[in-house]
């Protein structure tokens, strides 16, 4: 268990646009251990989403290596990546990404379904997960019957359902007002205090500071990696 959960080595992601090469990720080296709460922060176009896709095993690097839970993802097939996403990562998206035609329960059950878990157990786990975010009673409703904050909580419930090693949140408060944003962030902190590993992507320094460790990227390169206090000091942000 001494392996870090995330171990990215000399990772490049290069997009070819016409005859121009865009280094969306430019020699990224990043290790994240189990139990950490890390925010990845940067301006628009800095390469955050690109990095999140790599971390989330949604995409493969152009070059370099990515070990997730000790396994090299850069040589995996499409289906192997699907399996590793299913078992190790819980996604929380900016746009919630709930399926509108499924009930909340069915939405939360999805990762369990793809893990091949039997109906009964699936139901129990999904309900458990929904009750963690305080929406157990609404299990039979549809996403469009909920507020934005509630939908984001459902998406957190879905991310938690399969007890993944990593919660990966991409701008989780991007679509929410400041009050509900605060609720969601507090909830993430609570999950962290319960031992979950969380990686949160954001463009907002104030939100980045809610984590324990901040990684700042600029033009595809990591320009800062350290604890929240030193980040606040170095970038002169009031905490």
């Amino acid at each position: 268990m001494s392996d870090p959960l995330i171990d990215i080595r000399n990772e490049y992601k290069i997009y070819i646009m016409g005859n121009e090469q865009v280094y969306a990720n430019d020699n990224i080296n990043l290790k994240i251990d189990r139990g950490e709460f890390v925010s990845i922060v940067g301006k628009s176009g800095s390469g955050k989403s690109t990095l999140m896709n790599i971390i989330g095993a949604l995409d493969k690097p152009t070059s370099g290596k990515y070990f997730l839970n000790g396994r090299d993802t850069s040589t995996m097939s499409d289906d192997e990546l699907a399996d590793i996403r299913n078992k190790t990562i819980g996604f929380i998206f900016q746009q919630y990404n709930l399926l509108p035609k499924l009930t909340l329960l069915e939405n939360v059950e999805l990762p369990l379904l793809y893990a091949g878990i039997k109906v009964k157990e699936r139901r129990i786990k999904a309900l458990e997960s929904l009750s963690k975010v305080g929406l157990k009673e609404k299990y039979n409703q549809y996403p469009n019957q909920l507020s934005g904050g509630q939908q984001q909580r459902v998406s957190i419930a879905r991310a938690l359902a399969g007890s993944p090693s990593l919660l990966l949140a991409d701008e989780p408060t991007g679509a929410l007002d400041s009050k509900t944003s605060g609720d969601v962030l507090n909830f993430l902190k609570k999950l962290h205090s319960e031992g979950n590993t969380i990686v949160m992507i954001t463009h907002d320094n104030a939100i980045a500071l809610e984590a324990k460790r901040v990684v700042r990227i600029h033009d595809g390169k990591i320009i800062f990696d350290g604890d929240t206090e030193s980040y606040a000091t170095e970038f002169q942000i009031s905490h």
Partner: peptide, 16 residues
């Protein structure tokens, strides 16, 4: 397309 993307992100294999 979006639905398929979500399902795949959550771990749906190609066969599914």
């Amino acid at each position: 397309t979006r639905e398929i993307g979500i399902r795949k992100a959550l771990g749906a294999r190609q066969g599914v």
